[in-house]
Structures are given as structure tokens and as C-alpha cells.
Amino acid sequence: MGRTQPSLTAVVDHELNKFERVSSRLKDEKLRARVRALRRRVREVEGALEDEPTDPLEIVLIASFMDDRN
């Protein structure tokens, strides 16, 4: 909550930013579009995992599965 741990949302965004940097280095437009779509979903997953001890990367991963489904 900020006292001892960084905000989960900020860490998830940090992971997404890493994906975005990689996609632009790879010059992969498809990957970049997927990361953009991920951003729109990821908060929903974050909310759904509220009660679970979660790794931020896990949140991004689940959001990417969800994106495939939709």
C-alpha cells in the first residue's frame, strides 16, 4: 500500500511498459497492438485477483489469455 510495498498497479504497469519497450525494439507491430489491448484488460484481472497473493507478471499473463479469448 505504499508503506512497505509499492503499488500493485504501478508494478503491473511497469511490466507492461517493459513489454512495450521490447515490442518497439523488435519493431513488431502485432506485438505492440497486443500490448495496447492488454492495457485495456489488465485492470479487470487485477481486480479479480484481489483476494489472491499474486505476482504482477501473472496478472499480465492472465490478461493476455483473456485478450486471446475476446
Partner: peptide, 15 residues
């Protein structure tokens, strides 16, 4: 550490 992670959380946000 596990307890700390579980306990030290802020208010709930439903995006």
C-alpha cells in the same frame, strides 16, 4: 513476509 504482503493493503478498488 507473506503475512506482511497479505496485511499491508489499501482500500479496495473495482476499476
Amino acid at each position: 513476509l507473506k503475512d506482511l504482503i497479505n496485511d499491508d493493503r489499501a482500500g479496495l478498488i473495482i476499476f
